[in-house]
């Protein structure tokens, strides 16, 4: 009962909030990339890292990988065949575990809230 209530009344707000969050992330990503392009020295530390996934369905994985491609300095490359790990290329790797946790906590949780 509570779940049905939540689905009907909360979903539109969650989706609108998700879209606003997406636009904010997109804008910040562009400012950071633009800053790195326009300054003469390359300050980046690129690399490919693996992110363990808790979400299972195709739609959620697609949403997460699209979101990752559009946010600061990360680009999703491939999903493993058993769909448990997402490989991404990141541009500013200072601390690998921190980046992994940040993506899991911020993006994956939001995707779960909206689509789950």
């Amino acid at each position: 009962m509570i779940k049905i209530f939540r689905n009907i009344f909360m979903k539109p707000f969650l989706i609108v909030w998700f879209v606003l969050f997406y636009l904010k992330e997109l804008f910040l990503a562009n400012l950071r990339v633009a800053h790195d392009i326009l300054t003469p020295r390359h300050r980046m530390k690129p690399g490919i890292i693996a992110i363990p996934l808790d979400i299972k369905s195709d739609l959620e994985i697609m949403a997460l990988s699209n979101l990752i491609t559009m946010t600061p300095g990360t680009l999703s490359l491939d999903v493993s065949t058993d769909r448990r790990v997402l490989y991404i290329h990141a541009m500013y790797i200072d601390d690998i575990e921190g980046l992994r946790r940040k993506i899991k906590d911020e993006l994956e949780k939001k995707v779960m809230e909206v689509f789950g």
Binding site: P46, G47, L77
Partner: peptide, 16 residues
């Protein structure tokens, strides 16, 4: 990546 495009020499880590 499958075709073996070289990564930049400053690349920190490659878990793939």
């Amino acid at each position: 990546y499958l075709l073996g495009t070289p990564l930049w020499e400053g690349t920190v880590i490659d878990e793939l």
